[in-house]
Design a protein around this nucleic acid. Structure first.
Lengths: 233, 233
DNA sequence: CGCCAGCTTGAATCTACTCAAATCTTGTGG
DNA sequence: CCACAAGATTTGAGTAGATTCAAGCTGGCG
């Protein structure tokens, strides 16, 4: 089994808080025990007890809510370096179902008690996760379809750069239009039309599993999008 | 100055985790140092350092995001017993602006280190807050205007019951239609029309600052709305 | 080759928005 | 107690953005 970018999650956590040796060792040690999952695998089920928190090494996952009538909403995306089911303290149950969107490699998240720097990294990771939830609310509540798509792409670009797996203007992008729709509160048909518009407007390229933003900075400015206020500055 | 339901926030925290004497004392002590704010007061500003976390004693507040072009989105509601600007650990900056929606009484949140039971209550409070954010995302992403309104009312009913300030079927409700619109990602005109529909459908009564749900259980079932999976069971 | 998932297209419909004006409430000062 | 102003709610008509349904297309893979 080939494991791709094993150090991406480490790079992320280390960017959030300078990790010391104990933390580094704990992460490398955990990573060696990585497990692999196919797409559409339920990693966590809402309301169930959490066996142990996971750390994503490679691949994308999402928190999801499914309604009785079949409507689906992806609540948030989880990328390499993100924690799944980590709770600051005694919270035994998952607040949402989590599914893998792609092939996914994850390991047991190292225990934060091995190092204060690791604890700090987890804490900041949680803060960032909250920031992304807030951004998602603003997106769904007040942005048009076209704006939602661009705003999401910019957020992903930012997150993947933190991981060191994005170029200045492009990154690997594994989501189908259907999944984008479920994430953005739209229909896949409409996502398709808006993507075509964005392409014609020269804003982006999307194809062959790769997304290119022709001018990320200008796009961000056009949307009035501030960089996610990161709390570790 | 009259302070209304001083023990509501205590009731909430105590419901989240059986508080011991030290915690109880710390809360009562803090409450005595309560401060009062008018409506539309900025309690926290996004990106600014957090002086100290607050505990709401009475009144409603909201996390809010304002766009460059004036669009506004209320990200979440904060009710008595909720914490403002509390962070699991070293997170010095506010992840969103917080404003009071009504007259508001708040005090400095007692330090969780005085009692493990208080720490536990805070921790569960954070978990609940996350659950409400997720619910808000699902609401905005996949529910119709009518469903959003009803779902919000049911959530508020549930939260206020935890505080002991809601009847079986009604509660004090201080939001204008404009604010509901900003919270639900709609326009106030449309909120108005949907409320009229809901009234005609016999689902609710809204007037004079009070909301009555004619049959909360039936409404919840009609929406396929599970009770917020509370993590402290 | 042919299947299947994902993508694209079109036409009709519907939900929610915009703009504008009228009405109702509430609190305040005369 | 009434007049008034400011804020909040209600109403109407026209429009725009997104959905629905249905069909056709494309590319990768067994």
């Amino acid at each position: 089994m080939k494991i791709g970018n094993v150090d991406a999650p480490f790079r992320r956590l280390n960017a959030l808080a300078q990790l010391d040796e104990a933390a580094t060792f704990a992460i490398l040690n955990s990573v060696s025990s990585a497990r692999h999952f196919g797409p559409h695998h339920q990693l966590l089920i809402e309301g169930h007890k959490i066996a142990c928190p996971l750390l994503i090494i490679e691949g994308w996952a999402a928190r999801v809510r499914v309604f009785a009538d079949g409507r689906r909403q992806l609540l948030s995306l989880l990328l390499p370096g993100d924690l799944i089911g980590f709770c600051g303290h005694s919270r035994p149950r998952a607040s949402s179902t989590v599914i893998s969107l792609t092939d996914l490699t994850a390991c047991i998240a190292p225990d934060p008690s091995v190092s204060p720097t690791l604890r700090e990294a987890y804490s900041i990771s949680s803060a960032l996760e909250e920031a992304y939830l807030l951004a998602q609310i603003a997106r769904l509540g007040r942005l048009s379809a076209h704006e939602r798509i661009c705003d999401l792409f910019l957020e992903l670009h930012e997150r993947l750069q933190l991981l060191g797996v994005a170029d200045h203007d492009s990154f690997k992008f594994p989501l189908t239009q259907e999944k984008m729709a479920d994430l953005l509160g739209l229909t896949s048909v409409h996502v398709n039309r808006m993507l075509q518009l964005a392409r014609k407007a020269g804003e982006l390229h999307l194809g062959a599993g790769r997304l290119t933003l022709n001018d990320p900075e200008m796009l961000a400015q056009k949307l009035g999008r501030p960089k996610t206020r990161v709390t570790f500055a």
